[in-house]
Amino acid sequence: MSSFISRTCRTAFLALVIAVSGATWAGTAAFANTEEAGEFLMSLNREARTQFDDPALDEGQKEQRFRELAERSFDVPKISKFVLGVNWRRATEEQRNAFLQIFKEVNTQRFLPMFSEYRNQEFRVTKVRQDEKNEDVYFVSSTITRAEGAPIKVEWRIYRGSDSFHILDVVAEGVSMVLTLRKEYATVINNDGIDGLIAQLREKVRSGTTEPVITTTAQ
């Protein structure tokens, strides 16, 4: 009887030890991931800065580097799906692919100037938290201090893939990029259909209005 109790106690104790150490281990892992999530954006910022300041690169090469950086940093397929929302489900395979293709270009061009502006801005990560609903998603809060004007608060929603982190959303002063695009595109789709949206985005890109202005004037 007593041995039964002691055995139960031992088992319970063992279970507790496992549970606690397991929890601690999970805790450290989560912490490490949180750190990594912040580090991902810091290194992205550093990389943009380094490439920008590289005297060996001409304007075209710089743009090419930034382009690669943008394409690598954003998870365009996931963003595309969210941005189209219910319309993604309604779209044909061809429409989806056409949208993916043009949206990738729109997204890249949208962020090219941002990379070049990095050099005059101080980028600081203030807080990183893991999403309760999806442990692979992190919210990284940052402050961007500009040469002139008040600092901007930007929250990044990033996703941990197998190889690296990818940006899903950029929320500046409470305004979400993907949500804004989703609402805007929904209106265009309601009026002109998905093909209409694709055509208009292509026209935007073709006409060069989305073409970024990379200011490379040295200080």
């Binding site: 993604w88 998603v137 996703y159």
Partner: peptide
């Protein structure tokens, strides 16, 4: 399609995601 995808954007998924 995108079932499960919306998990990546919690908080945004409050029902009125269209216009």
């Amino acid at each position: 399609d995108d079932s499960g995808f919306e998990d990546l954007f919690p908080g945004e998924d409050d029902g009125d995601l269209e216009e």
